[in-house]
Design a binder for these strands. Structure first.
Lengths: 359, 359
DNA sequence: CTGAAAGCGCTTACAG
DNA sequence: CTGAAAGCGCTTACAG
């Protein structure tokens, strides 16, 4: 844990700091110098001070990736997508989770990130307000946003159309004969929360489905627990034959509540999530979900950033990622028996009794 | 994106750079100076260059947290635990995922992290070899390891006893009357992979359970997919009434394969995972798992690091986190019908036929 | 309260 | 090929 500097190595090797720097950066040097410097550097456990290096070369060779919620696999996929591209380009990646709860967190994280520790920033904010937009517009390093921006904002971004995504899900459920489609959303005021509610509303109108407050639930978080609680509440207070949740975590939470209530998926209630996370393949039943190409959006964001880094004055670019429905067993059509479902009613009773005994 | 410096602000405000620095760092200054500096700084969108600041103050006010696999919720919990503590202490947190696949990744990530961009490092490596130990021992900043270290290594660390954890799981299954307990492990050569296999072996011997190669599977990754594949293989080639997977992701993958094969959990096969991730609550059925206190280990690691930062010469400390079994429906005892299980055999057939039609 | 100056540890023209 | 020197943008004693 003792820090040695270039000067220490230079002294040890009997050369100038310039020579040490050259050797360590692979620039031409005599073999004798090179060997001696390397030997001394190694024996001293020398590691360059990156802050000093960055200060001099005006680059950190790092990119910051900032997301809201590390526990959400969709964000993790984005980060992994971005990482793959950036790593290939020779950048190190630093992740920061800003924590959707605290605007405070966002402020400090952005501050940290925007200067001195990164050459560029990829950010996928849950909430996009005008203050954040201004902060990003004036950032001292190139920024790419994953998510929507006010029309005309001069920031590269990659967007998806989650309104459309929700409509794909609604069409799918509608085609399966489902009519009373409940919707569990995340918090309003967030980008996904707002867009997905819009999507639900437009689909309900377009398809002529029942438009009832009782079929909608807003939660305070895109989490398993909130999805489960909202679904439990829906089950008690509402009648529905399908359920769309605004992300996969909530959908899986909801399936849990549905199973606890003794209702079968998809027979009694078809369930659809959003994000098409890997876990959709392994839930029981496997979860139909709307892919918003999280990993790909991460990759695209990284490419946009590399482009901006290479050409700072390139025209602003916005890339769209199309949503896509991925159907799985949670909306398998074959067993839907309509509203009058005596089979699942019987199942229901049995399962309820069983649960009661266990918990 | 235009970068202004302290000197720009000083010029604009008609004061020295020293005064600007003082104002911006909250040191005493006349009200007139303070207001003018702040105004100019704001209008210039000034943000301090953190590399320069770090170089001068010899601190970055950042901590690096390095994990192997961002997709694994256990690691995410650790990071979140560490983050909570470090944030309270005024540090910014930078996450890096080293990617278990490439030793290359580990090298560069460590290099990046070890000097200049962080004041300390928390690392939870999947593989702990002597080279890594040496690297960490000679790191220029304090290091805390989450995971085992060779006896006597002079690095603070927090460990859990996953051998014991596995034994708790085995005891639990044994008490439920299960005797043919299959085990799906991650790769050998990894810390958890090795320890958990040891645990399984010792439990099998201690409990007098059948010790057959056919009941064990090694995978190349602690993932959903590998867990599912290993379980599918076990189902075809082996007889078992319980299954322990070396982490929750593999356990959930395995439950998926078991469901596909038409076998019911826990009636026919009881399943246990390790890590007690949040998703265990929401899987279907909810998954019994061994908690290794991931979040808490993250917190403890952060506290150890803060202690080391405050007292560089404090004695080396190792903290143990005890494993704990959390029983849920995937090992519910009530429905176990023993090896001769005609009910689940019938289920099996029906489910198989159904799947075939769908995929 | 304020400014001039030194210096953190590097890199990089510039001479030689 | 090599060294002396300047300078990246800050902070901080040190004088005044």
């Amino acid at each position: 844990m003792v820090r040695s500097t270039l000067a220490d190595v230079a002294r040890g090797a009997g050369v100038s700091v310039a020579s040490v720097s050259r050797v360590l950066n692979g620039l031409p040097a005599s073999i004798a110098t090179r060997d001696r410097v390397r030997e001394v550097a190694h024996s001293l456990g020398y590691a360059p001070d990156l802050a000093a290096r960055s200060l001099k070369i005006r680059r950190t060779e790092q990119i910051s990736v900032v997301i809201d919620d590390l526990a959400n696999p969709a964000y993790v996929s984005m980060m992994q997508g971005a990482e793959a591209v950036l790593r290939d380009a020779g950048y190190r990646i630093q992740f920061s989770s800003i924590g959707s709860d605290s605007d405070l967190g966002l402020g400090t994280a952005l501050h940290a990130v925007s200067r001195g520790y990164a050459d560029g920033l990829i950010i996928c904010p849950l909430r996009m307000n005008s203050e954040l937009v201004e902060t990003l517009r004036h950032a001292p390093i190139p920024v790419v946003v994953i998510g929507g921006l006010p029309r005309g904002t001069a920031i590269d971004n990659v967007v998806t159309d989650s309104r459309l995504g929700v409509n794909l899900a609604m069409d799918h459920l509608h085609q399966l004969g489902r009519r009373r489609i409940a919707f569990i959303d995340g918090p309003l005021g967030t980008n996904p929360g707002d867009r997905r509610l819009e999507g639900y509303r437009s689909a309900v109108e377009r398809l002529g489905l029942p438009d009832e407050d009782g079929l909608r639930r807003l939660t305070t978080e895109f989490s398993y627990a909130k999805g489960a609680a909202a679904a439990a509440d829906l089950i008690v207070n509402s009648q529905f034959d399908a359920l769309l949740a605004a992300n996969d975590m909530m959908a899986i939470g909801a399936m849990h509540a549905i199973a606890r209530a003794g209702l079968r998926v998809p027979h009694r209630v078809a369930v659809v999530g959003i994000d098409d996370s890997e876990m959709c393949l392994y839930s029981s039943p496997p979860l139909t979900s709307v892919s918003l190409g999280s990993r790909h959006r991460g990759k695209i964001a990284a490419r946009l950033l590399l482009r901006r880094l290479a050409r700072p004055d390139a025209p602003i670019k916005r890339v769209r990622e199309a949503p896509r429905l991925v159907a799985r067993d949670s909306t398998s059509a074959r067993d839907f028996t309509g509203a009058d479902d005596s089979t699942s009613a019987r199942d229901s009773t049995g399962a309820r009794a069983k649960r009661r005994g266990q918990t």
